[in-house]
Computed example of a mutant assay.
Amino acid sequence: MSPSLTSPVSGVRKSTRVVFIARFTQCYTVLVFFSPSLIVHPEEDRKYRSAKFSKPVPLPSVHDEAEVDLTVVIPAYNETKRMPAMMQSTLAHLTSSACSARSYEILIIDDGSKDGTSNLALDLAAKNPKIDIRVITLIKNLGKGGGVRHGMLHGRGRRLLMVDADGASRFEDLELLWKAMDKLSPDEKQASIAVGSRAHLVKTEAVVKRSILRNILMYGLHTILRIVGVGHIRDTQCGFKLFSRGAAQQIFPYQHLATWIFDVEVLLLAKQLQIPVAEVPIQWHEVSGSKLNVVTDSLQMLKDLLILRANILLGRWKAPPRSKR
């Protein structure tokens, strides 16, 4: 066959490849532009205050040896109204007989609040001098995911609990997560996660009485999450999750998202690393005063999920291979 007969076909194929490469490059550039980088904290963020010290003290690292059995990480943004009741129930359980053999610390991460949340937290620390309450005040607001990440990276616990400051979750259900983790990883050095779940409450008054819009968005989010790759977890967004120290060490240094949907990235990183996850039904109730804007934050979540999925598919966001322990 003469060159003149094959050249048009070759030209079309070459042109198609050029167009594909150009479009891929454009999409990749847009993705890189909109993708957040790993959070780098200023020196002020890497210190804490407590009732024991008059000046800020440097924070330890999650990569150090554990010093207590449990770290409670509480992200807080403008929570002077809701946090006192939540802290009361938290301290009541931690000082009860159920936790008598367990050492612990509480990290309150003030995510750039403007209502005196840090002062309230320090006042609580002063009123409970026998309890190790550490207050970290971030210079600027990062988002709930940024606050949780920062606390997890500086906890001293063998296990680290993330819990919302609104008190929507029943703190006593920590024991359910604790038992589930014991079953997942009898060896305390093994990476594992136990997540609180509200999936069993979907048809109860706790969820049914919410607005129609919130429920429509909830079901829509669940559909998207199955597409993204975390369909095996029925409730990814519950703010009550327990991590072994090994899981925290492997996941949180590589978390990019600081917004509401950060939980999904954390669970996807766990899936990549083959870290076992137990989903545990817990008690939960709606608490007024949520900072979540149903419409705007839902759109932000959708955008973040698309960015997350694209970065994972392209291998841009991933944690190093799981180390053998």
Rank of each mutant, 00 (worst) to 15 (best):
S89I: 05
G151E: 08
D110T: 06
V266M: 11
K179G: 10
D110F: 00
E67K: 15
C238N: 13
A319W: 03
F53A: 14
C27R: 00
S7L: 06
A278H: 12
F262P: 08
I193S: 07
P320A: 04
T117Q: 09
W178L: 15
I282N: 03
H150P: 01
I224Q: 02
I251Q: 05
V135Y: 00
A247W: 04
V230C: 15
Q274F: 01
L70E: 03
T137V: 09
G220H: 04
S100R: 00
Q26S: 05
A165M: 07
R226A: 04
Y77C: 07
D187K: 09
D297W: 03
M83H: 09
D182N: 15
Y104S: 00
R316C: 08
H232S: 14
I282M: 11
H222L: 00
P321V: 04
M301L: 10
A194P: 09
A278Y: 14
L313S: 13
N215V: 11
N293D: 15
V202G: 04
D110H: 01
L225D: 13
K183Y: 02
I139H: 04
R309C: 10
R158E: 15
D173W: 02
P42K: 02
K144I: 05
L313T: 09
L314T: 12
D132Q: 07
I21P: 01
L70A: 07
D164R: 03
N293P: 12
L257N: 07
R170F: 02
F171Y: 06
Y28C: 14
D304G: 13
T90K: 08
G220T: 01
A191I: 07
S2Q: 02
S298V: 09
A76C: 14
G157S: 06
A247F: 05
P320L: 04
V195W: 02
D182G: 14
T90L: 14
S288H: 10
P75S: 03
V228A: 10
V230P: 11
V62E: 13
H93I: 11
N215M: 12
L120A: 01
A278R: 10
V208S: 03
V135W: 00
D297N: 15
V202I: 12
A126H: 04
L306Y: 14
E286W: 15
P321G: 13
L177C: 10
S10E: 11
A270C: 14
V57K: 11
S290K: 03
R159S: 15
L38K: 13
L91V: 11
L213S: 07
L59A: 01
E286Y: 15
A247G: 05
M301T: 11
S50D: 07
S100K: 08
S290A: 12
M162F: 14
T137R: 05
I233N: 08
F20C: 09
V72N: 02
V9A: 00
S192V: 08
D173P: 05
T25M: 15
V57E: 12
I109L: 03
V9G: 02
L313I: 02
W260T: 10
A66R: 01
L257I: 12
P36G: 01
H154R: 08
L299K: 09
N128Q: 12
L257C: 11
R214L: 00
D64R: 13
N128Y: 01
Y77D: 04
D111V: 06
S61A: 14
V207Q: 02
R82H: 10
I307E: 03
V287K: 10
W260N: 10
S97L: 12
G155S: 13
K183Q: 14
A98I: 01
S118I: 06
S288I: 11
V277C: 12
P276Y: 03
T223E: 09
K130S: 06
R226F: 08
